[in-house]
Design a protein around this nucleic acid. Sequence first.
DNA 1: TCGGCCATGAAACATTTGTTGCATATCTAA
DNA 2: TTAGATATGCAACAAATGTTTCATGGCCGA
Lengths: 290, 290
Amino acid sequence: MAEPAKSSPLNELCSALPSLPMRLQEVGRFVAANDYDATTRSMRDLAAEAGADPAAFTRLAKAIGYSGWDALRAALTEARRPSQTSPFSGRAKGRRHGPHADVALITDKLEAEAAGLPRISASSVANAAKTLHGAKRIWIAGFRSCRSVAELLNYELRLFRADEVQIVGGSGPDDLDLGAFRADEAVVVIGFTPYTGASVRVAEAAYRAGATLIAIADSVAAPMAEGADHVLLFEAASSPGFFPSLTGAIAIAQSLAAVTFSLGGATAKKRLQDTEARLTATSIYVSEKG
Amino acid sequence: MAEPAKSSPLNELCSALPSLPMRLQEVGRFVAANDYDATTRSMRDLAAEAGADPAAFTRLAKAIGYSGWDALRAALTEARRPSQTSPFSGRAKGRRHGPHADVALITDKLEAEAAGLPRISASSVANAAKTLHGAKRIWIAGFRSCRSVAELLNYELRLFRADEVQIVGGSGPDDLDLGAFRADEAVVVIGFTPYTGASVRVAEAAYRAGATLIAIADSVAAPMAEGADHVLLFEAASSPGFFPSLTGAIAIAQSLAAVTFSLGGATAKKRLQDTEARLTATSIYVSEKG
DNA sequence: TCGGCCATGAAACATTTGTTGCATATCTAA
DNA sequence: TTAGATATGCAACAAATGTTTCATGGCCGA
């Protein structure tokens, strides 16, 4: 009757728990403690692991107001569904007003981005770096806003792999480069929703050429992630704002460059020093003020 | 060929996609895009929603090396299982060597960068954005690795301030632009140690012209921060690695663009929509899978 | 002590699930 | 074009699923 409003199915379960027969309490606690398995594995499977009768699960579901175990599981499944980030509708968000609205906007954005960084798969980046290290040549492609990420990666890799790194379309129309991909080369493509046609074409060309394809994207469902040997994911929509965030992509690019450099060992170190020496000699850098 | 081996089932799926028959590609894309439903709902259910034959799912699973759909789903389920590792637990891992040294390097780097983001002064960014909003024209300068940051800021601002934003040296030698600075304009300079001479010259020129100078730098002692009306600080050296991190600078640039956009109000919104419409019309973007 | 009640487990049930065989449609190569 | 191979949809299959029924066992009130 006077249920505690419409909270999550788990809460309903917990609040109804004390008034249930002993066996159902056990089962209920098991479900609450293993709700992920509850949504993915079968009822009999759970029963075996919980050491209970399968029927107990059906009875539990009915006891707390569901038509059956399927209904309860459906509710749990929906409750667990990852929040669908509407990629481009975010700009319609209600603008907070007041004097500090802008500050709050920035703070939210930064917090969300900070939270997203640790979710990047370090092992995936490490594996991709191994591939880069072994590649005879490295192509980098990024268009629109992703061009900045591409250029950063290009710049950092060139510090110790000068002759072997190149931006796709860096010196002329993109299509001239697409035919140049070779099997022993690596192609890095950066992109997120909405995906540019050019990035997809690069990915396809890389695949056709048999080159190793590394995709830095916001989703495994990204078109240019198809056929990729490595997919490095970042959260573009995680931060509020009028445009998807590139912070994660930048972090990946830098990590990629850093690990590739460390794999390069003494040779890479030497080349980096040479490059720096040359830049200093041509007085690109300014001496710091004492 | 030697598989990367240690990748997620989603990655295996993506890399195998292009070599699959058309129908299986469709189904594969559907699975990649709806992997949560793939783990929770039934095969036939998915088939109905994807508009495909149930058998296609079984065939897809077998095509990429699993014994059947159940096996693929089990793999996806395990991959999706919530990790018991708390996101921000500063795990004390002394391991600096061994097989996982690279992974540890990346993890440390990401954690340090994530920790640095909240230290950015949101109010400073907000103030700088107000300046940008009032500026007749916006110049952006960044050299070497900072060029990527400059281009990102340029790209995002141009989405709604097309005619009034320009990269210094974007169309010819830098020095041609230096004389063009005016008093009612704003100049954004991005840089960190070691500082390039070019960025310092830009800052000086802006100061002489009486233009508003916004410096994005790693220190208030940076040469181009001298005489700046706004200094936005980020932590470049906070993360380990062979090269200072630009993650903070990117975050600042994006926040700056976002706030400037929000200050622009309806006009900015309208222009952004126009720009997007134009990009879509020229089919720069590829339509997402159905 | 007895009798009703409910909780519990085992087995039987109707569905639904994933799979496979087969006939047709589609593509590829000569 | 023809021949061979492959891809695809349909339908039937065995296995597994959630549910129900039934018999049993324990509990409390008379």
